[in-house]
Design a protein around this nucleic acid. Structure first.
Length: 324
DNA sequence: CAATGCGGCGAGTGATGA
DNA sequence: TCATCACTCGCCGCATTG
């Protein structure tokens, strides 16, 4: 692979780890961004609210910023918000006056626009979406999942009507078979719940989206190409790579459940089973708040969820994406 | 049964080489 | 300038949890 892939921009600060120089397989296994976690703080945050709990409570020491392995975060210490998405936000904002507006980009304002209807079309004048500034010596803001209580409930944003047996979104007229589908869809229009990235402050409606995003900062790349040393944060990226580079198309039976991949978000280690992951955590990250959280939860639930269960016990994010 | 978690799909964008 | 590939994220379907 001739391309200097992964390196979105040079400008890597001296003294900082350039993870793009590492083979992906090493990067994924070697990189240990977190031991870094102040467990107590982490746990406190995790207690906030079950629903609001940010999956990945990545808090870290103040010099964490310098350790960010992500190519997207590397080399932009000057930038208050270093990731690509921030640049995208900035770019988007700069484009907001132009004719082109990327429809999919959402602006994290934390405030509910007065008029929901044009929400998907209008980019409101954006105040700095989030406390940006991750100055090199700044303490990283904790992951905060906020429910902006000041905001009205969903209904005013997207009135639910039922027509032709479907639940229709009043904002975009999209219809859904189930109420719950609509409820979640409404979040797309409503800035009600924000899951904020502790690294860059970017907000997400979906906890998993945040978790996935955080990997861009932590450098965790669970999906490794078996034919080369490259690794990816998302399975689809790996599959795309396999198809384009190696001409290998991974096919799965219809609705086949792919093997779940348990990912240690602290070092990127992957395990085939949750037990294996737990063993890994006990061995290498005994102080991991994630481990403690799991233990606490198990104690409280007394065998509530089975070890293979992808959720529940894993909502503390010891597992990564992967696998359907 | 609603809420939540997770994976997949699709698309926009950046970086790089030809 | 264009093509290619990787990165990233919004959103949806489905599974699981409480």
């Amino acid at each position: 692979m001739p391309r200097a892939f992964l390196v979105k921009k040079a400008n890597v600060s001296p003294g900082k780890r350039n993870w793009s120089e590492l083979p992906d397989h090493k990067r994924g296994d070697v990189y240990i961004p977190v031991s870094i976690f102040p467990p107590s703080k982490l746990m406190m945050e995790a207690e906030a609210s079950p629903a609001e709990t940010t999956p990945l409570c990545l808090t870290k020491r103040s010099d964490m910023h310098a350790e960010l392995p992500s190519s997207t975060a590397l080399g932009r210490p000057q930038s208050p918000v270093g990731s690509a998405e921030e640049r995208s936000e900035v770019r988007k904002r700069s484009q907001s006056s132009s004719t082109y507006i990327r429809a999919k980009i959402k602006v994290t304002t934390g405030e509910l626009p007065p008029d929901p209807a044009p929400l998907s079309l209008v980019l409101p004048p954006v105040p700095a979406p989030h406390p940006p500034a991750l100055s090199p010596d700044a303490t990283v803001m904790p992951v905060v999942t906020t429910t902006t209580s000041a905001q009205p409930p969903m209904e005013p944003v997207s009135m639910v009507t039922r027509s032709t047996g479907a639940f229709m979104c009043q904002v975009c007229q999209k219809s859904f078979q189930f109420q719950r589908m609509l409820n979640r869809h409404v979040k797309c229009h409503n800035e009600t719940k924000r899951h904020l990235c502790s690294f860059c402050g970017k907000g997400f409606n979906d906890t998993f989206d945040l978790k996935r995003h955080v990997r861009t900062h932590t450098g965790v790349r669970p999906y490794k190409c078996t034919l080369c040393d490259k690794a990816f944060t998302q399975r689809c990226s790996l599959e795309s790579h396999m198809k384009k580079i190696h001409s290998v198309t991974l096919s799965y039976a219809y609705k086949e459940r792919r093997n779940k991949l348990y990912v240690c978000e602290e070092c990127g280690h992957t395990a085939a089973t949750q037990d294996e992951l737990l063993l890994h955590l006990h061995t290498l990250h005994p102080d991991s708040p994630l481990l403690k959280g799991k233990a606490a939860r198990r104690g409280g639930r007394e065998g509530g969820s089975t070890p293979g269960s992808p959720q529940g016990a894993e909502s503390d994010d010891t597992t990564g994406s992967a696998g359907q």
